[in-house]
Simulated scan of single mutants.
Amino acid sequence: MKTIGITGGIGSGKTVVASLLGVMGIPVYIADEESKKLTDSSPIIRQQLTALFGSDLYTSKGLDRPLLASYIFGHPERLEKVNDIIHPEVNRHFLQWVKQQESDLAAIESAILFESGFDRIVDVSLMVYAPRALRIQRASKRGTASREEVERRIQSQLSDEIKKERANYVIYNDDIRAIIPQTEAVIAAIRRG
């Protein structure tokens, strides 16, 4: 089985591409959703985070995300420590998940594929690219974040140019080129490759 890492910044359309893969019968692991579940359920993550920040970090409902955010906001060294706890567990969970799939391909979708090191556990990487202005427009329309928050998130992640250089494949989601034929072509190339 070959594994694919799908990435792209906020508003790029990586979730659309992940959905297309799902329609094509390719199972996709959504790293953001799974990492949230793991922070609540993994005893390893819980033990290491509470050792770092104290037992009040967890409630009966799981991780107190706003409290964790308050501890790491503006403290890149703390964020790095948290990532060093969570990312290896997500890696392990993904690799276990892959073993359970019955397909020739499986994928992981992650906005921080390269930053997290998830790119090292997949066979190929696929970046979904959209121009910055279009990404900001799309993400702002969702209503979950203000334009300023979207721009801050874009600036906090690896630049699209670096992601494009590091990715094995790029799909352009620019409202000019059709995304479905590009996705089909990339999957065909990966299967041949």
Rank of each mutant, 00 (worst) to 15 (best):
S125C: 00
E77M: 11
I121V: 15
N83P: 07
D56Y: 01
E109H: 08
G117Q: 11
L134H: 08
H93A: 14
H93R: 15
D64A: 12
R135W: 00
H87G: 06
A69N: 13
R138W: 00
W97N: 05
V124K: 08
G74M: 04
Q100P: 02
I108Q: 06
D104K: 12
E80H: 15
N83Y: 01
I85V: 12
Q137C: 00
R92V: 00
H75Y: 12
L68C: 04
P131A: 01
G62Q: 14
G74W: 05
N83E: 06
F118H: 10
E102Q: 14
V98T: 10
F73V: 02
A133W: 07
D84H: 12
S116I: 03
G74K: 09
L113T: 05
S103L: 08
S103H: 10
S116L: 09
S140K: 10
S103C: 14
Q101I: 08
V128N: 02
R138H: 03
Y58L: 01
L95M: 15
D84Q: 14
K99N: 15
E115L: 09
W97T: 05
D104E: 13
V124L: 11
P131E: 09
I121L: 14
A130M: 00
Q137D: 10
I72A: 08
I121D: 05
R120F: 09
L79C: 10
L67A: 05
H87P: 03
Q100C: 13
Q101Y: 10
P76C: 14
D56T: 01
L63A: 13
Q100H: 14
P131G: 02
K99P: 09
H93S: 15
E115V: 14
E77T: 13
D123H: 15
K99T: 13
S60D: 15
S116C: 10
A69Y: 09
Y129E: 11
R138G: 05
K61F: 14
L105N: 03
Y129R: 03
P131F: 05
R138L: 02
R92H: 11
D64M: 07
S140W: 04
